[in-house]
Design a protein around this nucleic acid. Structure first.
Lengths: 225, 225
DNA sequence: CCGTCAACTACCCATTCGGGTTGAGCGGTG
DNA sequence: CACCGCTCAACCCGAATGGGTAGTTGACGG
């Protein structure tokens, strides 16, 4: 009650599991800095009511009957980009979590998180953080690498010799070592030898990876092969 | 010791401040799971020696005389994408840290971190994590949002089922069946089963061909899968 | 209740791969 | 000349792969 009353953090919850939803509401309402402005049991209901309540943060279940939490997040962020979405998920839904982050969620909570984790996540987000596990954080960072990396790339000057390039090309066509040997009139052992050097130079461990990298590398250059 | 001797995590350190570098070495060498394979005092020296030592993780100072840690990280990741880089920085160099992450670093350490933080960061990275603060995490996630603008679909590019598509994607990343099984939480036999169907549907006979066809089929679509 | 289909698991088997090592011939360069 | 990189070749071995066959389960629609 002083002259600098921090505005409360309004939090909405979209969760079809009613007990869990109520449990989350209690946790939110137990916070000094936050309050729950609504608990809705479907993405459709949430999207309908969110405009009236304008929460700062939405705890969004990822698995909802009807529209998924991912789709809901995407729509929500399109309509109200300032609203932060924290995905609520059961353990081990990495793929979905990743999709949700792409859709605009800024972090997530595991369903069996303790109350303190929930509070912390809300504060994290409010303070500009992004609550997520190490594993997901890494995947996000990695996805993040490749995108800006394409802006100023110019791949490593990994230069394959003439013979190695011929082999790499055939590997990328899906030929087996024996077929490559026939095609280039070499011994299969020689093909294997070249392959080892190729793996080494390309920093890969199998022909499939080598094929992908090789094709990738000639995509920007003069594709005379 | 037991019959499952985990291989040591080789860590290299690039830090021009010698006392700090030695201090980091001691912390690394104090770990059961890790060891320090070199402490180098410049980016140039690091890049020169790294090929011989092939550390799994590099602790890279962000401010180095001559080539910066950011530039060094970018070059390092171009040459050896499998090496994980943890940026070592004085606090509050957000812009630079962000740049470093874009350059390919997967996380960072504050210079005055405690030994336990250093150990934790190394283990985090080794276990697929990405050590970083809430603030940086959020910026990464946000940068990540703007690029992709899609939400839900799982279009089977050709005729592949959802599961088959997941498998195909991982094959195209060069993963072995066992790794795919781990990643998707399946039995290796199931992966093989899906693979057989994929070969059938794609009219190919090996994973490499499948990878190429799959990548080809999604090249027009979303950059992420 | 039954048929179908996708997803999942399992076992067998011949072949192929990847890794490590070694070595020879050749041409260019310091 | 000695050294180095490229090409070609061979051997060993454990692990991975592809090919075939077969069975269970759950969901969906007849």
């Amino acid at each position: 009650m002083n002259s600098a009353p921090r505005p409360m953090i309004d939090v909405a919850i979209v969760e079809d599991n009613v007990p869990l939803g109520e449990s989350l509401r209690m946790v939110v309402d137990s916070m000094e800095q936050a309050r729950c402005v609504g608990v809705w049991t479907s993405a459709e209901e949430g999207l309908r009511k969110i405009d009236a309540f304008r929460p700062a943060i939405v705890l969004m279940d990822i698995n909802l009957p009807g529209m998924s939490g991912i789709e809901a997040t995407a729509r929500l962020k399109r309509e109200f980009p300032e609203i932060q979405v924290i995905i609520v998920t059961v353990h081990r839904e990495n793929e979905k979590i990743f999709e949700a982050l792409k859709a605009g969620a800024c972090g997530y909570l595991i369903k069996r998180s303790r109350a303190s984790d929930v509070r912390q996540a809300i504060l994290d987000v409010h303070n500009g953080g992004a609550p997520m596990s190490a594993e997901i954080a890494r995947r996000v960072v990695e996805a993040f690498h490749s995108a800006p990396a394409k802006a100023a790339p110019e791949e490593a000057a990994v230069h394959l010799s003439v013979r190695e390039t011929e082999v790499a090309k055939l590997v990328a066509e899906g030929l087996a070592n024996k077929e490559i040997a026939d095609r280039l009139d070499l011994s299969i052992e020689t093909v294997r030898g070249h392959l080892k050097k190729i793996y080494d130079k390309l920093h890969v461990r199998c022909r499939t990876e080598a094929a992908v990298k090789y094709l990738d590398s000639i995509r920007d250059r003069n594709p005379f092969g």
